[in-house]
């Protein structure tokens, strides 16, 4: 048997322990080589495609930070215009470009229902530029632009519900996933890939320096986020909502928060507030 050659190669320069390359590799294992990857400016771009080298073994294009959905729209339209109806177009973008700066372009792409699978690796802040808060940063988290001061203590607003917002565009598929639940992620990619039109998956991807965690526990934390109910595995398939996993006994959010330096400043009351908020949300299910 030929040696397995992943479509996202070793030698990339992601931080030790970063699970983002795992997300890419797992997804490309499913798509195979007949794919074009469109990448937003992000950690993933910097660590994968510094001239004159690249970690990608599939056709890959990076343009800018905020325009990736439009670039992918151009790629998809060009391929179809050339009579190519088989090559899949996939976006890999971080939460900064997805939730914030590229949100208009994302909405435009979804409204046009472009034939693109959009994967957001969500590490919950602008990590590439040194951990500034994004629309994906959760309540309470300390970042360099939501610092802990005498008056304000970390981010004081909740994370944007991106999957719900994306699903409201009435696209065929929108889901959340976590690299801690790799089989769920794989199942979602397998489901979304053959669909026509816009598909979207937001994948939780813990960040070693940004979250202030040990490099060994990134996968463990991605799983724990789901087990404590802070990160839900959901999908909207043709508008129909489904909760993919309901933990029998949710772990306390404290287990998850206490492992991360970005939540170190939280008081017992703060943690209780986050727990109450999570409990409230789970009453729906």
């Amino acid at each position: 048997m030929a040696e397995y050659e992943p479509l996202f190669s070793a030698g990339h320069t992601a931080c030790a322990g970063c699970p983002m390359p795992v997300i890419f590799r797992h997804i490309l294992d499913i798509t195979g080589p007949d794919v074009v990857v469109v990448n937003a400016t992000s950690c993933s771009e910097i660590i994968s495609s510094a001239y004159p080298r690249t970690a990608w073994r599939v056709p890959y294009v990076h343009s800018l930070f905020e325009n990736t959905p439009a670039v992918a729209s151009g790629v998809a339209n060009a391929l179809r215009a050339q009579g190519n109806d088989h090559t899949k177009v996939i976006i890999f973008a971080g939460d900064g470009s997805t939730y914030d700066i590229g949100f208009g372009a994302l909405s435009g792409m979804l409204e046009r229902n472009e034939d693109v699978l959009y994967v957001c690796y969500d590490n919950e802040a602008y990590m590439n530029t040194g951990v500034q808060r994004s629309g994906a940063t959760p309540f309470g988290a300390r970042t360099t632009t939501s610092p802990v001061g005498r008056v304000h203590h970390g981010k004081e607003i909740f994370k944007k519900p991106i999957v719900d917002i994306v699903a409201a565009h009435k696209i065929p598929y929108a889901a959340s996933a976590s690299i801690g639940y790799h089989a769920d992620l794989a199942a979602k990619v397998r489901k979304a890939l053959p669909m026509k039109g816009s598909r979207f998956i937001d994948v939780l991807s813990p960040c070693v320096p940004g979250w202030g965690i040990d490099s060994a526990i990134t996968i463990e934390l991605a799983k724990m986020a789901v087990d404590c109910g802070i990160w839900k595995l959901v999908e909207y398939e043709n508008g129909n909502f489904k909760l993919n996993l309901k933990p029998g006994q949710r772990r306390p959010v404290k287990d998850y928060l206490s492992k991360q330096a970005r939540f170190k400043h939280l008081t017992e009351q703060d943690v209780a507030k986050i727990q109450a908020q999570v409990d409230e949300e789970w009453k729906k299910y």
């Binding site: 439009a70 339209n77 060009a78 215009a81």
Partner: peptide
């Protein structure tokens, strides 16, 4: 014309051209 992308802003028009041109299409 085979494809006309009615973009949501001019930045996306140029960006879509970048994608289409990179994919080998006249744009």
């Amino acid at each position: 014309i085979k494809a006309y992308i009615a973009t949501e802003a001019e930045l996306s028009s140029m960006s879509a051209c970048i994608g289409a041109s990179a994919a080998g299409s006249r744009t």
